[in-house]
Design a protein around this nucleic acid. Structure first.
Lengths: 193, 193
DNA sequence: TTGTCTGCAAACACTTTGCACTTTT
DNA sequence: AAAAGTGCAAAGTGTTTGCAGACAA
């Protein structure tokens, strides 16, 4: 089963770790990115813990992937990730089946969050990052983050009215970003189709 | 190209029609559905207009599909629609290729809106319906609608801050609906994974 | 040793497309 | 007659899965 937004089931544990020593690298491509929170252990330590408590194994592929994923701080999909991993035959090659399997584990472990965009599954770092939502530029297809507590308030109010027990939400604002707006400002209506 | 939420490009025209004679049937399955607005022409008339202005043709399949789609007022995906259409060999059979093609046209024409959920494309009536968002029950997988002008206000504020020109948004609140909450209230934590 | 994990290839679900034929204009 | 639309089957995507051998515990 695949849910549009997958929240890690072990969020209690997760929250327990917020606010101490480990600090994630600041996002690179990220004029608009949010500051990471401090967390008590690295993603890698956290994942080890997750594996241990479930009797799962620490394989070279999993170790390699966690480094690869947490090196970058952008949104990515499975394909983009696979593209920047070693090819078949090269050292540290990981099959795409394993990449898919491992990404799901990262989501379960609370390290990544995933959602659907343009038909594919997009992942982003979750562990140590504050809750946020996205602006999506339909022209250049990039994602920008924003935070709004008001949004959460509305969410909870609406949910309460309908008798819903909330587990999360996904808000995506679509439009044209500043840069794309600049470069193509004079587009005529008929071209917008 | 497929965008998570597809807004019809001809919304100016669309809006021009709100507020007159034609009134869509009230949604059926709809304890939680919103009231349709009055619009000046039926979806069918609107689609004819759309076809004419583009030099496209009125085929029996298109006529049949528009009736079939606007008969129901729920959310649906291509598969569900195909299921309630005549089978191959029967009268009025429409191939699934044509169903897919036509659904895209309905979206272009501003009759339907589409978005992604659980990996598939979900459609809902747009023409003559007010802007709204969704609650999604992850247990029974049903969608409920809600309206919130506050949400739109937040959206516009956020977008303005980031220099975005907004074309739309998609908010989905996930959780467990009232009914599902009742029937499985005593689930233990370990089962929730 | 035991059970998990991996890579491979095949399967999958959903959607799109090329093409020859049909239909609308 | 010309252009657009349809059905069919085949091809695409993006992702999952069955299985035999590889490996961590």
């Amino acid at each position: 089963m695949r849910v549009d937004v997958t929240l890690h089931p072990s969020s209690a544990l997760h929250l327990g770790y917020i606010g101490s020593q480990f600090q994630l690298k600041t996002p690179v491509s990220a004029a608009d990115s949010l500051e990471p929170l401090n967390v008590s252990s690295s993603p890698r330590e956290r994942f080890e813990e997750y594996l241990q408590t479930r009797g799962l194994r620490q394989t070279s592929q999993r170790k390699f992937l966690i480094e690869a994923v947490f090196e970058e701080h952008d949104h990515f999909d499975a394909d983009e990730l696979i593209d920047r991993l070693p090819r078949r035959g090269e050292e540290n090659y990981v099959s795409s089946a394993t990449v898919y399997r491992t990404l799901r584990e990262f989501v379960d472990a609370g390290l990544l969050k995933s959602f659907q965009l343009d038909g594919r599954t997009v992942y982003e770092l979750d562990y140590g990052y504050p809750q946020h939502d996205h602006l999506y530029c339909t022209r250049c297809r990039s994602l920008f983050e924003f935070q709004s507590t008001d949004l959460t308030t509305i969410r909870d109010t609406v949910a309460a009215e309908k008798g819903f027990r909330v587990s999360g939400h996904r808000m995506i604002i679509q439009g044209v970003c500043r840069d794309c707006g600049k470069s193509r400002r004079k587009k005529r209506k008929q071209d917008l189709v």
